[in-house]
């Protein structure tokens, strides 16, 4: 299980909540079963529960990164699930019915995801529909579109390149984990080293005022959705190969508990208290 890393890339203080809960959960899991933290090397790559977590959580984390950027603009992208499904179906379709090389399929799938994002972005930024409403459309229609592409059947296919992409290992770690790690690293770097994070927050907080100081607000919002679509497309390709065997019972309850826990920490009221404490600490530090 992986905590969605939403918001954390944008602002340092806010990542405390999710990070703490992640550590708490890992500790709790370790307490319940000591094997949880054990890592071993099997067939030249690492394995163990923690690795499984990374392996399974990678696509979700990827989708969450895209979502984080969208949420930063005070939006939301409900359609990511559908975009994951569409792009998964598209890549499977291309693999089974064409002889295109893998990079071309990769590029085409990402392009499809970006077009989906563009559609959302246009509805939100240009037409001016609320994000939750605008992305609902693709969320509903998208499931149908994905089924239409895969013709209502689960496509089975064989492709070495796709297999490496979804299930392969590189330097003892799964390739999908590398992909996600590299994307996260790039985003953090961009947010830290450029003013993009500031612009996104500014547009999220007040789009009109941001436009008047010379930020291309609409373009920024549009691109946020395109980026989200792009992330969902990559996640879709990864999951197209490896369907997660999801042990349902406890998993869902824990997920619910975590969502709530993280949110309690992030609710305006608790956040205010935490902020005050942090400011107090900072003040002491300066003194």
């Amino acid at each position: 299980m992986k905590i969605p890393m939403n918001i954390m890339v944008l602002r340092d203080q806010k990542s405390i909540g999710p990070l703490l809960s992640l550590i708490l959960i890992i500790l709790a899991a370790a307490a319940m079963s000591p094997d949880f933290l054990r890592l071993s090397i099997v067939d030249g790559h690492l394995s163990g529960s923690l690795l499984d977590i990374l392996h399974r959580g990678a696509p979700t984390a990827l989708v969450a990164i895209g979502m984080a950027i969208v949420i930063g603009t005070k939006g939301i992208d409900l359609s990511v699930g559908s975009v994951v499904a569409i792009s998964g179906a598209v890549s499977a379709y291309l693999l089974t019915t064409t002889n295109l090389p893998f990079p071309a399929i990769l590029a085409l799938t990402i392009a499809v995801g970006m077009v989906c994002g563009l559609w959302n972005g246009i509805l939100v930024a240009i037409v001016g529909i609320q994000p939750i409403v605008a992305t609902l459309i693709l969320m509903v229609a998208g499931r149908g579109i994905a089924q239409m592409i895969s013709a209502g059947q689960i496509v089975t296919f064989q492709s070495n390149a796709m297999d490496i992409f979804g299930n392969g290992y590189f330097l003892a770690l799964p390739v999908r984990v590398w992909i996600v790690a590299i994307i996260i690293a790039c985003i953090i770097l961009v947010m830290r080293k450029t003013a993009l994070g500031l612009f996104i927050e500014s547009v999220g907080a007040n789009q009109q005022a941001s436009r008047l100081v010379g930020i291309e607000a609409k373009t920024l919002v549009l691109l946020a959705y395109v980026f989200s679509g792009c992330c969902a497309a990559i996640a879709g390709m990864i999951t197209a190969i490896y369907t997660i065997g999801w042990p349902p019972q406890y998993n869902l309850i824990v997920k619910a508990a975590i969502v709530l826990l993280v949110l309690l920490v992030q609710s305006p009221r608790t956040r205010l208290v935490i902020k005050k404490k942090i400011n107090a600490m900072r003040g002491n530090h300066h003194a």
Binding site: S210, L212, G214
Partner: peptide, 18 residues
Amino acid sequence: GIIAELSVRENMILALQA
């Protein structure tokens, strides 16, 4: 005018940064 949630510093440098 203001971007209420951002700090005084961020509000002030926004135009130059943009």
